[in-house]
């Protein structure tokens, strides 16, 4: 029998997920209480609103070793603070474009709208993201 400690470690994507506390965070909770099976690779960070995500959070996550960053907020029109997700959309569009411009793979950064009732969608978003990151492999470009 081979020694498991001698085997090369399989790459497990590390994903940082910034989840709005009013929707996506509750959505991830719903996925949990509904006993949906989905990838355990996403580390959730609950934030007050997707509009409160500073671009620095995303850059910093990549810098500190995230293989992918997910930002998830409420559907347009559903923001608890009226317009936070619209502001997030514009701001994070610029971040996405900038990251692509310097040559980070486009699939590393993702944004989604997940409401509190969409537990299944949350599981699907995370699964899809993990699958894409698995094919890309570890993120070494912005990692320090």
């Amino acid at each position: 029998m081979s020694d498991p400690s001698q085997e090369p470690q399989k790459f497990e994507p590390r994903i940082v997920a910034f989840l709005c506390k009013w929707c996506s965070s509750a959505g991830s909770d719903l996925a949990g209480v509904s006993r949906l099976q989905y990838s355990p690779n996403a580390t959730p960070i609950t934030i007050p609103c997707s509009g409160s995500v500073s671009p620095l959070y995303i850059l910093s996550a990549f810098n500190k070793g995230a293989d992918g960053v997910l930002v998830s907020g409420c559907h347009p029109g559903d923001c608890h603070y009226m317009e936070g997700n619209y502001l997030a959309r514009r701001k994070l569009y610029l971040v996405k474009e900038l990251l692509q411009f310097v040559g980070l793979e486009p699939d590393r950064f993702r944004m989604s709208w997940v409401s509190a009732a969409e537990g299944a969608k949350f599981a699907q978003v995370v699964d899809g993201f993990v699958k894409d990151i698995r094919t890309l492999g570890p993120q070494n470009r912005l990692r320090r």
Binding site: P55, L59, L98, L99, L142
Partner: peptide, 12 residues
């Protein structure tokens, strides 16, 4: 990586 972070932050 740190310089990238600095320049990207500044650009944003």
């Amino acid at each position: 990586a740190e310089s990238a972070l600095y320049h990207l932050t500044r650009a944003i």
